[in-house]
Amino acid sequence: MLQYAAIVLLMLGLYGLLTQRNIIKIIISLNILEIGLNLFIVSVGFVDGGLAPIFTSVNNSSNLVFVDPLPQALVLTAIVIGVGTTALGLALAKNIYQKYGTFEIDEMGEE
């Protein structure tokens, strides 16, 4: 179920990127694409009945069943990289607005 939701989010983001003509909406679609991707990555590591991979005073032995911690570490990196690209995209959007006066690509005219 979760993996289907992740694929739906991915496709929603891709649809938005292909059809939207407003700079801010393109950035939002890019973020939806990345959220779907991160959700899919985490879902690959799930084990039914597994615990969170942290040793605590309750789950204190290594003989218990844990979920896979590696996809969670990969998602940490992927989220931060997404934040970096979004920040750059928004700064470019501000520059585009100052240069052309609009956020719509069709009204911008020249190449």
């Binding site: 690209t85 470019l92 911008m108």
Partner: peptide, 10 residues
Amino acid sequence: KPLATFNYLV
């Protein structure tokens, strides 16, 4: 050319 850079980024 900020629009070209934005397309490259996406």
